[in-house]
Every structure is written in C-alpha cells, then in structure tokens.
Amino acid sequence: MSATDQVSKEAMAPVGGESGGLPSPDMMEAAEIVLPCRDFDASLEFYRHTLGFKIETIYPADSPSTAIVFGHGVRLRLERGSDSAAVTLRLTSADPAFKAPIDLVAPNGARIIIAPKGMGYTLPPIDQSFVFQPIGETPDWGAGRAGMLYRDLIPNRQGGRFIASHIKIPVGGPVPDYVHFHKVRFQMIYCKAGWVRLAYEDQGEPFIMKAGDCVLQPPEIRHRVLECSDGLEVVEIGCPAEHPTMVDHTMTLPTDRFDPERDFNGQLFVWHEADKADWHPWRFDGFVYRDLGIEAATHGLARVRVAKARGATGPVMETASHKGEFLFFFALSGHGSLVVEGEGRFDLSPGDSTVIPADTGFSIDSAADGLEVLEIGLPAEA
C-alpha cells in the first residue's frame, strides 16, 4: 500500500459517533454542497436572481434557515450560520439498511456528510403545556417565505410537534409565490381578513378564499398563492413544527385533471366556505359553532370549528377539558374571557391565542359585543 493510499483511508474515516457501515454508492440519491451563510436572505436572493439558481426546498416557512437550490449542474444547500473554512458535501442514501448519518473527512479536508433518506419530517413526541399568546399593542411580525409577515402563536412549539402562525400581507396584488408542496402530517389555513386567490393540484380553476373560509392542505398537494387583497390575514396550523417546503418546477397550476375526491396521503382537499355553513350548539351555553369539514377529510385526525357567541354569555359555571394531543384557540373577533384551571383568567381580544393541555379544565365566555374563536383539536374524537 502506498503512502498516498494510507492517507486517503485515514482521511475518509468516519468522524465521531457510531460509524456503522457506509451505504452502497449505488443507493446514493443526491449530493449537496453545503454553504453556510451569515446573511441567509441576501445569500438566497443572490443565488436565485443573480446566478439563476432555482429553489428546490426551503424551511421552516416562518423563518427560513435552510434552502436547497439547483442550477448549472449543481445543488447547493444554503444554511443560516457563520462562514465555514472547509467545503461540506452532503449526500443522501436510499439504502434501507442505512439508518444513522455518517460524518467523514475527505483527503482534501472537505467534510462529507452521508444521511439516510427520510420521510421529510420528524414527528416529535407529545409535549403539552399551557400557552397564552396575546397580540399586544405592538405585535412582533417577522419576515417569512415569499415576502409574507409571520407572527408566532406557539413560541414553545409544544416540543416541536405543532406550529401556529398568524400571517399577513399588508399590500395586496400578485404574490411572488411558486408551485410548491409541504411534507407534513397536518396543515390548514384559515382566512381571518381580506381575500386570497389560490390554485391547488387537481381541484379545478383558481378560487378566492374569503374571510371566514378555510382550506385543508393534505400532505404533498401542490399549490400556489396567486394574489391577495390589501390587509390579508390568515392563521396557519401545521404538524410537525418543522417540515420542508418543496418546490415543483414541472407542474403548472391549474392542472388539466379535476379530481376533488383524490386522496393525498390519506387526506382529501377541503375548501370550506363560511357563507354556506350550518350552525350548531357549542360546548358552552350561548355559543354556536360551524364545522369546517376537516374531521371527515382527515378520517378523524383533526377537528376544526369556528364558535361564536350570540351576545353576552356571562361567566361560565361549567368547565370543559379534552383527552387529545393538541387543543388550540384563536380569537377572531369580539372580546371575552378565558379561564384555565391552575392558570387563572385571561382577557380575550382579536389575535390572542391559547393552547390548552389535556385534562385541564377551562371555560370561555363572551362580552357584550360577542366573541368568535377558531378551534383546532387533534385527534378529532378527543
């Protein structure tokens, strides 16, 4: 064995952790050159608009920190962070026997990461806690994907299992979006104010979602935001909190195919129109609710309702609780009070939100001008 061969073998040894065996080269699917970026947003704009790269994947949506772009025969993985002295090459393997990432150093000093191909997201364990997130006088809005402004409604993410975002676009017109999809367990969007024109895979011509309407986005359905009104506001709930957004550069929306009953990974697409809904008595006296059709479309994974008070309800004497993994409320309009066992009483105003843990008693009442709340629960039967 030559000295050069010896150096190469030593340099390619796995670094840290359990090394296991290298996957077969025939099972390698993709390679990415990893480029840390001190200014992630400026770097992404440079590679896209100055150099002509296209986005393949970007996440998380509310504050992107990783983007995979491709073009000119190469794929780059832009990661928010400090500059790196050495080049990193990241590869993924479809070998089913390959379970844990391997970290290598090449003879030229480049870092090589080989990672198993995953389902696109990791579902963290259930980690429930009480959250009350008031909108306050100066809401904290941050820049997110496609020029949208995001407000975090669950800062602790319930251990990474759920994310809820209040999203707005102050100035309407065409939205700089692209055909994309999400690798996600559950995702829905409720329109709080204004309107937005959307297109979805196999769901016909683009349509306008108005205030009070809702869409369920089944996992991996292709879609695109086309335009919106001034002052658009939506509430988006996703599980898990971190999931990839993938760009589809080959599909054009709307598609020629119309299949409203198409199954997308066990779920159906839903466009709920508020002005067509029926109302029923809710869990608290003086309230009625409309069901948004998501329980049936997800086969019981989630239930989504909008409840409203018919005038003032006064203090509620009885409490409710749940046995599920997630119960979330967002105040849409009006004013009222939330009382949570062991936590106290909270005033509810439009834009406030809360997460109620399982087996925790709570009640909601309404002030004179009537309260309206969005309710999301997983699973539905809980």
Rank of each mutant, 00 (worst) to 15 (best):
F70D: 15
F70L: 03
G73W: 00
V74M: 08
V74D: 02
R75P: 01
R75D: 11
R75Q: 13
R77C: 15
L78G: 05
L78E: 04
R80D: 14
G81Y: 07
G81F: 01
S84Q: 11
A85I: 05
V87E: 04
V87R: 02
T88Y: 04
T88A: 15
R90Y: 07
R90V: 08
L91S: 02
S93Y: 07
A94H: 04
D95V: 00
P96Y: 14
P96W: 15
A97T: 11
A97V: 08
K99S: 12
K99C: 11
P101F: 00
I102Q: 06
L104Y: 07
L104K: 06
V105I: 08
P107G: 11
N108L: 05
G109D: 10
G109R: 03
G109M: 02
A110T: 08
I112V: 14
I112P: 10
I113L: 15
I113P: 04
I114F: 11
I114P: 02
A115M: 05
P116W: 05
P116Y: 01
P116I: 10
K117L: 13
G118V: 05
G118P: 15
G118N: 12
M119W: 06
M119E: 15
M119P: 14
M119L: 09
Y121P: 11
Y121T: 07
T122Y: 14
P124T: 14
D127K: 08
Q128F: 02
Q128H: 01
Q128D: 05
S129R: 02
V131I: 12
F132P: 00
P134M: 13
P134D: 12
G136E: 06
G136H: 04
G136D: 06
E137F: 02
E137T: 07
P139N: 05
P139Q: 06
P139E: 04
D140M: 10
W141G: 02
G142E: 12
A143T: 03
A143I: 07
